[in-house]
């Protein structure tokens, strides 16, 4: 199979395929967000490609890039036994305009996956019939898998008991402090604009 998938994609969509690579043997194509559904339909219906199984859909946040959020779709073809990873990028610095066409009419299995991407990364899918939060509760604000969401920021549904109510101390030592037990390389994420300003970039 090797580069069959990528070649066919490039032949068919030309400049809408922004970038391709085959790192570690995983064929990857980055396509334009506006052609997202068209690409999906092509991948499913082309007899030589026949990607009939939606494996995974997820969002990755790159605050320093524009467009900011990358939506990654993994597909598998049971008949041809090959895989492809299709990516697209949406959203500006503040994650405005994170919108994509829903693929639910192409593969019904992406239903919850799209809800999850919406919940975790905040990408809205046009045409999804039931785009609600799935892992978190409706009252939750923000999207935790964006890099600028602080990992420890909780939004409790019910107020915690106070020590006066409990009559016993409730404070505990956190398992690790912000810098303790963690790698040196980690940095606190703010949004991309602030970071670029800090470093004096435009």
């Amino acid at each position: 199979m090797s580069d069959l998938v990528l070649r066919k994609l490039k032949d068919r969509f030309g400049s809408a395929v922004l970038e391709t690579h085959s790192m570690c043997g995983d064929e990857t194509a980055i396509v334009e967000a506006s052609r997202w559904k068209e690409v999906a339909l092509f991948l499913r219906d082309d007899a030589e490609l026949a990607f009939n199984m939606p494996i995974d859909l997820c969002g990755v946040d790159y605050p320093e890039r524009l467009p900011r959020i990358e939506v990654v779709l993994h597909l598998y073809s049971l008949a041809r036994r090959h895989r492809v990873r299709v990516k697209t990028r949406v959203g500006d610095e503040e994650c405005n305009g994170c919108e994509l066409d829903s693929l639910i009419s192409v593969w019904p299995g992406v239903d919850w996956l799209e809800r999850e991407v919406f919940d975790m990364s905040g990408v809205r899918f046009r045409g999804h019939p039931d785009l609600r939060r799935i892992l978190l509760y409706p009252e939750f604000e923000g999207h935790p898998l964006r890099k600028d969401y602080p990992a420890q920021k909780t939004q409790p549904l019910i107020p915690y008991r106070t020590e006066a109510e409990a009559g016993v101390p409730l404070e505990k030592l956190a398992p690790f402090g912000p810098d303790e037990g963690m790698s040196f390389g980690r940095e606190v994420w703010t949004n991309g604009k602030a970071r670029r300003e800090n470093r004096g970039e435009q």
Binding site: L136, P144, A151, T154, Q155, R161, V168, K172, A174
Partner: peptide, 20 residues
């Protein structure tokens, strides 16, 4: 008891925050 190593946005740090 205390939330364990799930010290994050979604986990209650111990049930004694809610009930005795």
């Amino acid at each position: 008891s205390c939330g364990g190593f799930y010290d994050n946005y979604t986990t209650v740090p111990g049930l004694d925050k809610i009930i005795p």
